[in-house]
């Protein structure tokens, strides 16, 4: 079955979404991630969406859910690399992803993730 790969880097999990996801794929990723956080006791999750040229309400909701889920499981989530056109569209759509931490790129995201884990 088709899956989005989840990489482990120390206590962090790294997800780079590079395909045009259909809904089931997004739901599978959500399940896989929560299972991995639980199994590895990961402290942080970095989701890189710089390759996505569209985020609709379904994917937006998935990101929000992952962020909420991981917080309950004592992990921080940082979303990185959202393209300008995607950001403008999401805001117009009415999704502002409150409570989801963001960073411009993977490097900044890792830095932010470390800070947040230290403070949590």
């Amino acid at each position: 079955m088709e899956r989005i790969p989840i990489l482990q880097m120390g206590e962090f999990l790294l997800v780079t979404i590079q395909v045009d996801m259909h809904d089931q794929l997004a739901l599978t990723l959500q399940d896989d991630l929560s299972e991995r956080i639980n199994r590895t006791s990961a402290r942080g999750v970095l989701i890189d969406i710089s390759a996505l040229d569209m985020v609709d309400s379904f994917i937006g909701r998935m990101i929000g859910t992952i962020s909420g889920l991981s917080r309950i499981m004592d992990a921080q989530t940082v979303l990185v690399g959202m393209q300008p056109a995607v950001a403008i569209t999401l805001v117009e759509l009415g999704m502002t992803l409150p409570g989801v931490a963001t960073a411009l790129n993977v490097e900044r995201g890792m830095k932010l993730l470390r800070e947040r884990v230290e403070n949590s």
Binding site: L79, V80, G81, M82, Q83, P84, A87, I88, L90, V91, E92, T96, L97, T102, A103, L104, N105, R108, G109
Partner: peptide, 12 residues
């Protein structure tokens, strides 16, 4: 206001 929100979503 939308711009401010979009900038936040991008991580700045």
């Amino acid at each position: 206001l939308k711009t401010v929100t979009a900038i936040r979503l991008m991580g700045a």
